[in-house]
C-alpha cells in the first residue's frame, strides 16, 4: 500500500487537497498492552462496527473513507487498495458525495519515521534494512531507531588508555540491542533479543589523531526470525557486519555499521546503521 497508491502523486495530491489523512497500526490498538488510549481504541472499533453494519469490507488491513464527522462511508481491502486506480476511484466517489472545498493540506506534511524522544546525553542510531528483492515486501526499506542511554554507549567503549591495535568486544547486551533489528522487511516485527543465538561486535583501534579514536568494527549475528506474527516457522537469519566507531574521551561516539552479507531463510538483505547527529 505504501509503495503503491500512497506513493502515487495523483493519490497524494487528491488526499492532501480534499481529505484529512490518518493511519493506524493495529498493534497499537489491540493486544494486552495497547499503546493508544481507550477513547482512541473505541473509535477504531466503532469504525469497523459501522463497516460491518454497512456490509463494507472490514478487517485488519483496510483503506477506509469516513464522513467528515467520522462515520464509516466506504472501504477497500488492501488487495484492492494497492491498485492506485481503485483507490483513486474510492476517493473521487467521496469527493462527489461530500463536496469538500479543495485547499491546502490540513497539516504540513512531515517525516513519519522520526527518532523517539531521548535524553541529551543519549545517542540515537538509525537503522535501514532492505531485502534485495523488489515488489511487495521489498519495495520500501524498513527503519528502526535505537536509543543508547549514556551508560549504554559508554559500554561499547574501551576503558583506560587506548592504543593503536587495541581490540575489545562491545558490551554484549548493547550489541544485541542493535543487531536484533538486522532483519529484512517482514510482517512480524517482534525484535526480542532472545531470538538471537550468537552475536558479537568487536572493535580494533586503527588510528588516534587529535584525541579522536577511529576503530574498525567486525561482527555478526545469528538468530531465528518469523516472517508472519504468531507463526512458529522461524527461519534462520545470519548477517556479517563491518563498521567504524569514532570517539573522543568523555564524548558520545559515532558508530556506522553495514552488513557485508545477510540472509533470512533464502532472502538476501542489506542493513546500514549510523549515529544521528546530536543537537537535533
Amino acid at each position: 500500500m505504501r509503495a503503491g497508491p500512497l506513493s502515487d502523486g495523483r493519490v497524494i495530491n487528491i488526499l492532501n487537497r480534499n481529505f484529512v489523512c490518518v493511519y493506524a497500526a493495529n498493534e497499537d490498538y489491540t493486544g494486552p498492552n495497547p499503546l493508544v488510549g481507550a477513547e482512541e481504541r473505541a473509535e477504531l472499533a466503532r469504525i469497523r462496527q459501522e463497516g460491518y453494519a454497512k456490509k463494507l469490507s472490514v478487517g485488519d488491513v483496510r483503506a477506509y473513507v469516513l464522513t467528515p464527522d467520522g462515520h464509516t462511508h466506504d472501504s477497500l481491502h488492501v488487495a484492492a487498495a494497492t491498485n492506485g486506480t481503485t483507490t483513486l476511484a474510492m476517493l473521487q466517489r467521496a469527493i462527489a458525495e461530500f463536496k469538500p472545498s479543495p485547499g491546502q493540506p490540513i497539516v504540513p506534511p512531515a517525516p513519519q519515521s522520526t527518532p523517539p524522544p531521548s535524553t541529551a546525553d543519549a545517542i540515537t542510531l538509525h537503522l535501514v534494512s532492505r531485502g534485495d528483492d523488489r515488489g511487495s515486501w521489498g519495495d520500501v526499506p524498513a527503519e528502526n531507531w535505537i536509543v543508547l542511554a549514556h551508560a549504554e554507549w559508554l559500554a561499547i567503549l574501551p576503558t583506560g588508555n587506548v592504543v593503536p591495535g587495541q581490540t575489545w568486544e562491545f558490551d554484549r547486551e548493547v550489541s544485541a540491542r542493535i543487531l536484533t533489528y538486522f532483519y529484512p522487511q517482514t510482517e512480524n516485527n517482534d525484535a526480542r533479543i532472545d531470538r538471537i543465538q550468537q552475536h558479537s561486535l568487536t572493535a580494533k583501534v586503527l588510528a588516534i589523531k587529535d584525541g579522536v579514536v577511529t576503530a574498525r568494527v567486525d561482527g555478526y549475528v545469528r538468530m531465528q526470525h518469523v516472517f508472519y506474527p504468531g507463526r512458529k516457522d522461524a527461519q534462520p537469519l545470519g548477517a556479517d557486519v563491518v563498521g567504524v566507531l569514532t570517539f573522543a574521551p568523555g564524548k558520545p561516539p559515532s558508530l556506522q555499521l553495514a552488513s557485508t552479507q545477510a540472509v533470512h531463510g533464502q532472502r538476501p538483505f542489506k542493513v546500514a546503521v549510523r549515529t544521528m547527529p546530536t543537537g537535533r
Partner: peptide, 16 residues
C-alpha cells in the same frame, strides 16, 4: 473534509 483512514499490521511509517 472526508477522512482517509489506513489501518494495517505493523508500522507503515517505518516500513516495518
Amino acid at each position: 473534509r472526508p477522512i482517509f483512514l489506513y489501518s494495517g499490521m505493523g508500522r507503515i511509517n517505518t516500513g516495518r
